[in-house]
Simulated assay, not measured.
Amino acid sequence: MFKIIFGFIFMSTIVFSTQELEFQVKKIDNKNIEILVTESSETKIQIYKIKYGDTLSELALKLKNNMNTLIKLNNIKNRDLIITGENLKYIKKGDKNED
């Protein structure tokens, strides 16, 4: 569920399996909103091997992913518990010009 705050443009990213969509919600008037949905530029699922001392929040910043995206992609039940040596899937965004 997403909360829409009227008077502001609300932007977010939703991940469906390995497809990433970006959407932008804009208030038109008191009764109408406009929702723009676009497919992100080319995305790739990458693997990061968790190291001792890593935290999910630090990895989200380092890997340029939203913490909730990492939780959903990896079926993490407890965001405070990640295991050293396990693989963490994350989305690497790229350009269409990138090889």
Score class of each variant (00 low, 15 high):
Tyr52His: 13
Thr55Pro: 01
Tyr90Leu: 07
Ile71Trp: 01
Leu81Cys: 03
Gln24Gly: 04
Ile33His: 04
Ser12Glu: 13
Thr38Gly: 07
Lys72Cys: 01
Ser41Val: 05
Leu61Arg: 14
Lys72Met: 05
Leu88Ala: 03
Met67Tyr: 03
Asn74Arg: 04
Lys89Arg: 10
Leu36Trp: 04
Ile47Glu: 08
Phe2Gln: 13
Ser40Gly: 07
Lys51Val: 00
Thr43Arg: 11
Thr38Ile: 07
Asp80Pro: 00
Thr18Asn: 15
Lys3Trp: 08
Lys27Thr: 02
Lys92Glu: 09
Val15Pro: 00
Glu20Thr: 09
Asn75Pro: 03
Met11Ile: 14
Ile5Phe: 09
Glu22Gly: 06
Ala60Tyr: 00
Lys77Asp: 05
Lys51His: 13
Ile28Gln: 08
Thr13Ser: 12
Ile4Leu: 04
Ile76Leu: 10
Val25Thr: 09
Thr18Pro: 01
Lys72Ile: 02
Tyr48Arg: 11
Ile83Val: 15
Thr84Glu: 15
Glu20Ala: 04
Asn66Ile: 06
Gln46Asp: 07
Lys77Arg: 11
Tyr52Leu: 11
Asn97Ser: 05
Thr55Ile: 05
Val37Leu: 14
Lys27Trp: 00
Leu61Ala: 13
Leu56Met: 08
Leu59Trp: 06
Ile71Ser: 03
Asp95Thr: 10
Glu22Ser: 08
Glu58Arg: 14
Asp80Ala: 13
Thr38Leu: 05
Glu39Leu: 10
Glu20Phe: 02
Asp99Val: 15
Thr55Val: 05
Thr38Cys: 10
Asp99Ser: 13
Asn68Met: 10
Asn74Glu: 02
Lys26Cys: 10
Ser57Phe: 12
Lys27Arg: 12
Ile5Gly: 00
Lys92Gly: 07
Gln24His: 09
Lys3Gly: 04
Phe6Thr: 10
Gln19Arg: 12
Met11Arg: 15
Lys44Pro: 00
Ile9Ser: 08
Ile14Met: 06
Lys89Gln: 10
Ile45Glu: 13
Thr13Cys: 05
Thr43Cys: 15
Asn68Gln: 11
Asp29Asn: 14
Val37Lys: 05
Phe8Asp: 08
Ile82Trp: 06
Arg79Tyr: 11
Phe23Glu: 00
Lys44Cys: 08
Ser40Lys: 12
Gly7Pro: 04
Lys72Leu: 03
Met1Cys: 08
Asn87Trp: 06
Asn30Ala: 15
Phe10Ile: 06
Gly53Trp: 14
Asn66Phe: 01
Glu20Leu: 09
Gln19Thr: 14
Lys89Glu: 05
Ile28Cys: 01
Glu58Ile: 04
Ile82Ala: 01
Met67Ala: 06
Lys62Trp: 06
Glu20Asp: 03
Thr69Ile: 07
Leu73Arg: 04
Asn30Gly: 07
Ile91Tyr: 00
Glu34Gly: 09
Gln19Val: 15
Lys49Ile: 14
Ile28Glu: 12
Met11Trp: 09
Glu20Gln: 12
Lys49Ala: 14
Asp99Tyr: 13
Tyr48Gln: 11
Gln46His: 14
Thr84Gln: 15
Glu98Asn: 09
Leu56Gln: 06
Asn78Asp: 13
Thr38Tyr: 10
Glu86Trp: 06
Asn74Trp: 02
Leu88Cys: 04
Lys44Ala: 11
Leu81Gln: 13
Met67Gln: 05
Glu86Gly: 03
